[in-house]
């Protein structure tokens, strides 16, 4: 199964990386480190799930980082200044995000514009809107924010599976089911294969495109909610550049940037790899945290080269032998 090959490579890289870390740092191989890995990268994992759909469909969503920033500011203002219940604020922001994503999808579809440009405009719009609301960091003091860590599940050893980590795992499970076991998922792949052909085969590409970007923005909003729990604050400059980390996680996870091929599970491992590098640097203690970026860059480059090599190999490879019985 050569389609699984990139995912297998990604998984192997993660496992080898984990073993190397464990050998170097005695305390590394513990449920605590693993649980922290999940918790700390939950926001990235959630938004990367949505990005996986977008990239497989042949698009890109540059607005997700700005949507996360917007979400944190919106929540802080709604909860602190307007006194709205956090749950109501969550529901409101998810609806706003859904509308925002649907609008981007509609513009891409009906004005026939490249997703790159449309979501770039969406990025500036969302980031600008959050600055408009507040340029300060606003702390959130709602009881939910201080109580949430209490709901974590104790794991054997020292680890705690936090609510945040559970949300991410649930999102990944949801993403896997949606992409691989529904008609909508098949349509996402179809769009990535060829929009024109998909339309000729009866896929309602307008509807699918709008749904894909809606999904991406809603998950970015959910990611923003999770992000607000890390900092217990809303700040218009939060999550700057996260869209690029997200794209990196998706591509390292084996999804073809040109669209048409990829797996949600690969993205999960791609997120964990980025988290692993960060953990290594934290354990080491002497390295600059910017090494995360450098290592991510090198990995990303390696994976893109790998993908190109595979695409080229697949082209040159002789066609699969055909079992034919002439009747």
């Amino acid at each position: 199964m050569n389609r699984l090959f990139p995912v297998l490579v990604t998984t192997a890289v993660f496992l080898i990386g984990f073993v190397v870390c464990s050998l170097q740092f005695p305390n590394f191989a513990s449920t605590r480190v693993v649980a922290d890995l999940l918790t700390d990268n939950a926001f990235l994992g959630i938004v990367a799930t949505g990005m996986t759909f977008v990239i497989i469909s042949g698009g890109i969503d540059l607005s997700v980082g700005a949507v996360i920033g917007f979400t944190t500011v919106f929540l802080a203002l709604a909860i602190q200044q307007l006194g709205i219940s956090p749950w109501l604020a969550f529901a409101a922001i998810l609806i706003v995000c859904a509308a925002f994503g649907a609008a981007m999808g509609a513009v891409i579809q009906y004005f026939d514009l490249p997703p790159f440009i449309v979501t770039l405009a969406g990025m500036f719009l969302a980031r600008g809107a959050s600055f408009l609301m507040s340029t300060e960091s606003i702390p959130i003091n709602a009881p939910l924010y201080s109580e949430l860590p209490d709901y974590a599940i104790k794991l054997p050893g020292d680890g705690q599976l936090t609510v945040i980590a559970m949300i991410m795992l649930a999102v990944f499970a949801f993403g896997i089911v949606l992409l691989h076991f529904t008609r909508f998922g098949a349509n996402v792949y179809a769009l990535g294969g060829s929009r024109v052909t998909a339309a000729l085969m009866g896929v309602r590409i307008g509807r699918v495109t709008i749904l894909i970007y809606t999904l991406s923005s809603v998950l970015a909003g959910l990611s923003g909610i999770v992000f607000s729990f890390y900092t217990s604050a809303g700040y218009s400059l939060s999550a700057v550049g996260v869209e690029l980390d997200t794209i990196a996680a998706v591509v390292i996870g084996g999804t073809l940037l040109a669209g048409g091929y990829g797996f949600v599970f690969g993205t999960f491992v791609g997120v964990l790899i980025q988290g692993l590098i960060q953990s290594y640097i934290n354990f080491d203690g002497t390295l600059s945290s910017w090494w995360t970026k450098i290592a991510t860059g090198i990995l990303l480059f390696a994976f893109i080269v790998l993908q190109q090599a595979m695409v080229g190999f697949a082209r040159r490879r002789s066609r699969r032998a055909v079992g034919v019985t002439l009747s």
């Binding site: 998922g185 098949a186 349509n187 085969m201 091929y261």
Partner: peptide, 25 residues
């Protein structure tokens, strides 16, 4: 050929009209 090379043969044959149960293909 106006078909989708990245999808499986079966998906190509049934795209848009896959047999489903509770929404799952």
């Amino acid at each position: 050929v106006n078909m989708l090379p990245n999808l499986s043969v079966a998906q190509n044959l049934f795209l848009g009209r896959q047999p489903t149960r509770f929404g799952f293909v």
